[in-house]
Amino acid sequence: MSEENLVTVDKYFNFLSEKKLMGSKCPKCEHIDLPPRRLCSKCLSESEWIELSGKGVLKTFSSIYVGAKAMTQKGYNRKKPYVFAVCQMDEGCSVSGQLIGVEEDKPKEIPFDMPVQVVYLKTQTGEDKEGNPIYRWDVGFEPQK
């Protein structure tokens, strides 16, 4: 595997910043992992990058009223909860992400197995020398339109 094609965490996040959802696919058993893994989670063969459809379903979630600092800094609080979700993609792999576009404070009305699509969400993690914000990009979800 050339350095250029190596499945690494940094490249995964760089793809997300380009609004591309990249998983890893095993050339031997065709299993797909998301988040991507260099070694296939089923047979430990060396995986290759594959672009995913970005479509899946909601497997479980929680509306969080006392949030992680990364979320409270975005203005979420007891009165304005956010939704942490685990979604299974159409390719079979599952990943965590914030679920937006739902009524966060009415969790009983958010349906399990609801079709979702990936959105790309940014969080400020610091500032560069010139005082410009530095962001990281993460997978999020919204209901399929």
Binding site: V9, T60, G67, F84, G140
Partner: peptide, 24 residues
């Protein structure tokens, strides 16, 4: 920290997701 924290996971949140799945 790499894949859950910035999705908004907290410890109560992770167990709440387990609880919600159990309820469902």
């Amino acid at each position: 920290t790499t894949y859950e924290y910035f999705a908004g996971a907290t410890f109560p949140g992770l167990y709440a997701a387990i609880a919600n799945a159990h309820f469902h």
